[in-house]
Amino acid sequence: MADVKVKKESTEPVDIENRIKELCSQFPHGITDQVIQNDMPHVEPQQRAMAINRLLSVGQLDLLRNANGLLYRLKDTQSTSKVKGSDNQEKLVYQIIEDAGNKGIWSRDIRFKSNLPLTEINKILKNLESKKLIKAVKSVAASKKKVYMLYNLQPDRSVTGGAWYSDQDFESEFVEVLNQQCFKFLQSKAEVARDSKQSPMVQRNSSFATSHEVWKYISELGISKVDLSMEDIETILNTLIFDGKVEMTIIAAKEGTVGSVDGQMKLYRGVNPIIPPTGLVKTPCGLCPVFDDCHEGGEISPSNCIYMSEWLDF
């Protein structure tokens, strides 16, 4: 018994530390004191405490509290090296920002979480920014709201607004160009189908294009500098539906077919409007901005209407 004890005594504190680190790396979510105890039943609690304390003070271990007691977790070595040379407050802010992930966090939320005064936080944020540890990203949801995230992260779609935004501005021209190109593609496809002189069924079916085909066409055109996903193209195609220029059908597709999602495929085709512009809008009155104020004998009347005169002389 004494022998064993002597042997235990001889176990270096470094060994214990290494063992604890090993354990922590095995359980990245953190380990409780109990785990360490079970792993090294022979080590005195005092020694254990000493080793843990040392690791904590060096900053290799994190002490966390959860529902069933204290948790030890290995600290990200990278981050430790990054925040090296900064004080605790800076570390804290960095950690909060890190936790926010690629969604970013607003400076006011940092204040709530860290309980630091705003001026202090601003100073720290500026500091971290200059070290290129974090960056500020403007959110599309609120143009004046800046969110902070780690420097190397790609901002989330909800922050940037996806492919349709550049610098928080909605790229309506880009959308319009894509809208026109998609329509052109579908229209030419419909025309080829119409000229093919095949049976009506075949004609109709060959005028359909899957969203995958449209996506491929657009990607090959190279209009877009950003990578568009198939969902992006589908949103564009949806605007065409709302323009009344395109129809969509969903068909069941075999699993694994190109362009099928959840066993279904969306087919689009260009269609013609069912009526030419209606008669009402061919007259000036149909488009008149002051139509409701127009009365015979009034200041604005059909007799002295300038729109009407211009239209008649056209």
């Binding site: 009402l280 009155c285 127009c294 059909p302 007799s303 009407m308």
Partner: peptide, 15 residues
């Protein structure tokens, strides 16, 4: 609106 438009057109024609 259509009714009013037609009335306007007729009145303009009379005018």
């Amino acid at each position: 609106r259509c009714y009013k438009t037609v009335s306007n057109l007729i009145e303009r024609r009379l005018f």
